[in-house]
């Protein structure tokens, strides 16, 4: 019960200092009381908070090596500051600039092809009347989401193998020469994005199916009475009704544009395809983890994180304006 009723708090006749002193004492007894009574919830909270501090916030402190000449022996605190030097190095490096562009290009293509796929799939599922068929199809198309990227990569590598792969087998039926897909830069993006759609379109359709399920059925009934056909109902009722969901999901996607599933890229790319496949995170992995240039790699990571942060925050505030629904 929260009664919105303003009223005057009884006035005391003490001096300000006394009052302040009393308040402090009151606050202190209240706090002691509170912790005596509620200590259990703090015990429950502690492991989670300690975990966050230790595994996510402590690395943020370590981010300072992006501005330092870091050496393992001197440690984070002992390494000398170098200012923005690493960022200068990064933006002077063709590799890093290429990685940034590749990240943006892959994300943009993913947005163009990967984003509509689950929406179209959801609309198609919605038009299926046979419940058994619908359920079976859904069960199957959700499955790849739960398969690890190593397996996905294994399947892709096998399927696109020049001698044994099914893709080249089929190409062979039409009399063409086998293509060494995974070594050709021009083939990397189509394969990567196609794999993404194959893996995630089904699972991604759940959100839109739920939105469709939320459409008031009487809208369709009145449309039937008005003589609309299924195609018209889809365009005039279903799609406008789920537009808020589509917009929110789109904004989330744009906010996450710097996040490319680099696990799969690491598993699929090779030096021959770096030209199109190397993204910021794979660049960081090679420079930092494999190459040992922690400070430069950390700088690249910081750049990535800051851009991502700005994008996500912008996306969240835009979505708030659109729907009065915050994403978090």
């Amino acid at each position: 019960m929260s009664d919105e009723h303003t009223a005057s708090i009884p006035k005391t006749e003490k001096s300000n200092v006394e009052v302040r002193h009393d308040r402090r004492n009151e606050r202190l007894t209240w706090l002691i009381d509170h912790f005596k009574r509620e200590w259990q919830i703090y015990v429950m909270l502690a492991p989670a908070i300690i975990w966050f501090l230790l595994f996510l916030y402590k690395p943020m402190y370590g981010l300072q090596i992006a501005f330092k000449d870091y050496s393992i022996f001197r440690g984070i605190d002992g390494s000398p500051w170098v200012g923005w030097e690493h960022f200068g190095t990064l933006f002077g490096s063709d590799q890093f600039v290429r990685a940034v562009w590749n990240t943006i290009k892959i994300s943009a293509l993913n947005l163009l092809f990967g984003f509509p796929a689950p929406i179209i799939l959801a609309l198609m599922f919605n038009e299926i009347l046979n419940a058994t068929f619908k359920k079976t199809a859904q069960t199957i198309v959700y499955l790849p989401h739960f398969i690890s990227s190593v397996i996905i990569a294994g399947i892709v590598i096998t399927a696109f193998s020049p001698s044994a792969g099914i893709v080249n087998t089929i190409i062979g039926w039409f009399g063409f020469e086998p293509i060494y897909f995974l070594t050709k830069p021009e083939w990397f993006r189509p394969i990567f994005i196609g794999t993404g759609i194959w893996q995630e379109a089904g699972f991604g359709s759940i959100v839109f199916l739920a939105a469709i399920a939320g459409v008031n059925p009487s809208l369709y009934e009145s449309a039937v009475v008005d003589g609309a056909n299924r195609w018209q109902m889809m365009w005039k009722i279903t799609i406008p009704s789920i537009m808020p969901t589509i917009l929110i999901m789109l904004i989330i996607r744009i906010g996450n544009i710097m996040e490319v599933s680099f696990e799969l890229i690491i598993l699929l790319y090779q030096p021959a395809t770096y030209a199109t496949a190397d993204v910021v995170n794979t660049f960081i992995y090679r420079q930092g983890i494999q190459g040992g240039q922690y400070d430069i790699a950390a700088a690249a990571g910081l750049f990535n994180a800051v851009v991502a942060f700005v994008l996500v925050m912008t996306a969240n505030s835009i979505s708030k304006r659109f729907s009065r629904t915050s994403l978090w």
Partner: peptide, 13 residues
């Protein structure tokens, strides 16, 4: 008995 939520008082004695 008084009840206040912050500056808002909902039970006045």
């Amino acid at each position: 008995v008084f009840k206040r939520y912050g500056a808002v008082q909902v039970v006045h004695g």
